[in-house]
């Protein structure tokens, strides 16, 4: 049973949509922040958006773009799961909630900000907006959030629990992240590679185990996480690296999207684009931490 990537949606410092991402990939260039969720107006009425903070807007926008890209907007969500990964969660809303306490005291904690600061809020909004009543999962694993969450998506498809998964990752750049970024750089323990900026954005995918009519981007061949050397080396094709030491050959695309725990999802999007374009046959996306943990996502071509 094969799992295919049917649609890709993304918003970040490079702009909005898979075409903008593909252009950044081809031409390079530095991302510009903040990312702009305004294109969400095309999918969700303004009045309905009021409960969505920036973090959720970025995620919901990328998710709708992925569905649109797959030609699946408006499809019956009956056999659809929602899986979201985030490294830091809604840091902007978390800060706003703490601000409400700092400024006006305990009794003035904002319940709206508190509810918004829960990590699974974007997944909840997606379920509500799409009428998706199947399983929903949000994972927070810092730099390995994306491969970890993708493991669950793959497992649910393999088990036949669902036959489509709306899978994605989102991270937000708030004043808190900017401060952490700056301070860690000062302390010579940078959070990202040289030349990369602190980033934000969301990248989403429609994964499917169905026999879909539309031609997919690529297949999802394997996902694994663990500690120690990642399996399957040496990799036959392009390797996209995130984090870890510079001891393996591969490309680092973080300077295009900015550095954030969700960045491997943008690498995944780039890999899908490259395979569809025929520029690459196979791509391995390898995320690694300083402690020696890895997350590996292996993508292959769509020939039947």
């Amino acid at each position: 049973m094969r799992i295919t990537v049917q649609g890709v949606g993304a918003v970040g410092g490079f702009g909005c949509g898979v075409a903008a991402l593909a252009q950044a990939l081809a031409q390079g260039g530095a991302p510009s922040f903040p990312a702009d969720p305004a294109p969400l107006d095309r999918f969700v009425p303004k009045r309905t958006q009021r409960r969505l903070d920036r973090f959720s807007r970025l995620a919901v926008l990328a998710a709708h773009l992925a569905l649109e890209d797959a030609g699946a907007l408006g499809d019956d969500p009956e056999r659809l799961a929602v899986v979201v990964a985030s490294g830091y969660g809604a840091t902007g809303t978390t800060l706003a909630m703490i601000d409400s306490i700092l400024e006006s005291g305990d009794a003035c904690t904002s319940p709206i900000h508190f509810a918004g600061s829960l990590h699974n809020t974007p997944a909840a909004h997606l379920s509500i907006l799409l009428g998706a009543k199947g399983p929903s999962l949000t994972v927070s694993q810092f730099e390995l959030s994306v491969p970890s969450a993708l493991m669950a998506a793959q497992l649910w498809l393999d088990q036949g629990r669902v036959d489509r998964v709306l899978f994605g990752a989102v991270d937000e750049k708030s004043e808190l992240n900017d401060y952490l970024w700056e301070r860690r750089a000062e302390l010579e323990r940078p959070l990202g590679p040289a030349g990369a900026a602190c980033g934000e954005g969301a990248a989403f995918f429609l994964l499917s185990s169905r026999d879909e009519p539309a031609s997919p981007y690529c297949t999802l061949d394997a996902v694994s996480t663990g500690r120690g050397p990642a399996p399957g080396q040496p990799y036959p094709g392009l390797v996209l690296l995130d984090g870890g030491a510079d001891d393996l050959p591969g490309r680092r695309l973080t300077p295009l999207w900015g550095c954030m725990p969700a960045a491997p999802a943008f690498d995944l999007a780039a890999a899908a684009v490259l395979i569809r374009q025929g520029a690459e046959e196979r791509v391995d996306c390898l995320a690694r931490t300083e402690d020696g943990d890895f997350g590996l996502i292996r993508l292959g071509p769509c020939r039947r």
Partner: peptide, 11 residues
């Protein structure tokens, strides 16, 4: 959820 926020805003 707006209702509980409104209660806080009154305070």
């Amino acid at each position: 959820l707006d209702a509980v926020e409104l209660v806080m805003l009154l305070q």
